[in-house]
Each structure stands twice: as structure tokens, then as C-alpha cells.
Amino acid sequence: MADLTNTETIRPGWFSTLANPTTFMRLSGKVLPWLAVATLVLFAVGLTGAFLAPPDYQQGETVRIMFIHVPSAWLAMMSYTIIAISSAGYLIWRHPLADVSAKAAAPIGATFTLVALITGSLWGKPMWGAYWVWDARLTSVLILFFLYLGLIALRQAIDEPGRAGRAAAILALIGAVNIPIIKYSVNWWNTLHQPASVIRADGPTIHSSLLWPLLVMAIAFTLLFVVLHFKAMRAEILRRRCDALIARHVRGDAARAGTEEAANA
């Protein structure tokens, strides 16, 4: 049994050490240039493959929209999942870096959701004859976009950062129910949107000539998300340091003014 009276033997775990804002700033500063280069290389390879791939036998050249639409849609869901996990981490352990992660991911997720909606709409018009239909997949992704906007607006509406973080975390966890709805909407309901064709129990149904550029683009988009998320987290940590400095300075001034007032009384 651990000797809890001997505090010298208690060391923070590797995750706590990694989740320390100062450690995060140091490590992210080192890996970011490499990640950015890897992202650019993967985008170059993926885009080359996307435009050299043969046209689809049914969709023709419009299948090229898939190479940006599908990774954007995956990231839209992944970003929200990261927000939900970070929010749970913040509510349970009150770890400030978890709140930083949740806050930083919201605008990125909202943008990828918007890209998925725009490119999906532009793909839908030549294929379905309509830019928009109120089917379960499209509607649930639109709700996801509104959830992102709600999270951003909620933080803006509450001045006290701790309260804003808790309120946004609760909303994020409630909204997480939408993620499985988006994923399985094409199976649960009769939708115009096609069912899953890559992540399936019986394997992908896409031809390999179209599949490899799609997977490269998916990795490129994921790395892009990591780079943007790290950048946004770094900015948020610096913002909180500035705010803390100003708050401490204001408190110091107030305390000094109180002491002088008491001395003069």
C-alpha cells in the first residue's frame, strides 16, 4: 500500500507533466515546424493524386470534390470529439490545459464543418440536382455547425473565464450526442447522402486509385488540424498569461491603495 504520508514520493504522472502549459509550449514549439513541413508535403502528394486519379465511373470528374469534402467532414467530427473529451477533462480534473484545448478547437472545427457543408453542397448540385436537401446526414452536420457557433458565442458571452469554460464544457458534452447521430444517420434513416464507403466492416468500397489520394488527403487534413490546434492553444495560453499578469497588477495596485488609505486614516 502506498505511503501517503510521505509526500516526497508522490510524483506527477507523465500525462500531468505533458499537460503542464509550460511543458506544452516548449514541446509544441519544437514539433510545430516539423509538423507544418509534413502537412505541406502530404498536401502536395494528396492534391497531385487527387487530380491525377481517374474519373469515377458514375460521378465522373466531380468525384474530385470528395478529396476535400470527406476529410473536412471527418475533421468536423474529430474536432468536436476532441472538444468533448477536453471538456470532460476540464469538468472532472479542472485542468486548465483541457479548457485551452476545448476553446482552441472550436473555431477550427467550425471552419472544417463549413468547408464540408460548402463542398458537399457543390457536389450535391451536379449529382443530386439540388444544393441542399433536409436529409438526416446534412441536417445533423448543419446542427454540428450551429453547435460550434454556440460554443464560441457562449464563451464570448460570459466574462469570467472559469464560468465560461464550465458552461461551454457542459454544452459541448450535451452536443456530443450529435456525433454518433451524424456517423450512423446514413444507416438509421433513408438518406440521399451515400452510406459510408471507406470505414466499413467489410472494407472500403472505393477503387484503390481513388482511395490512396483520399487517405493521403485525410492524413494531411489531420496534421493540418494538429498544427492549427497547437497554434491556437499556444495563443490561448499566452492570452491567459497576459490576463493573469494584468489581473495580478490590478490586485497589487488595489492592495497598495488600501494600505495607503488605512495609513492616512
Binding site: 474519373p55 465522373g60 470528374e61 466531380t62 474530385r64 470534390i65 476535400i68 469534402h69 473536412s72 473555431p107 477550427i108 471552419t111 463549413l114 468547408v115 460548402i118 463542398t119 457543390l122 457536389w123 448540385k125 451536379p126 493540418l224 492549427l228
Partner: peptide, 22 residues
């Protein structure tokens, strides 16, 4: 890119604009 080239180019343009802005 065939008769639907405009849809493809606008899709890529919109995605590039959004990613660049981000």
C-alpha cells in the same frame, strides 16, 4: 474537368480560402 468543372474549382477555392483564413 468536364461540364462540372466550375463546381470542382469553386469547392477547392472555398476550401483553400477557409484553410488560409484559419
Amino acid at each position: 474537368l468536364g461540364p462540372h468543372a466550375a463546381f470542382i474549382w469553386i469547392s477547392y477555392g472555398a476550401a483553400a480560402f477557409c484553410v488560409l483564413a484559419l
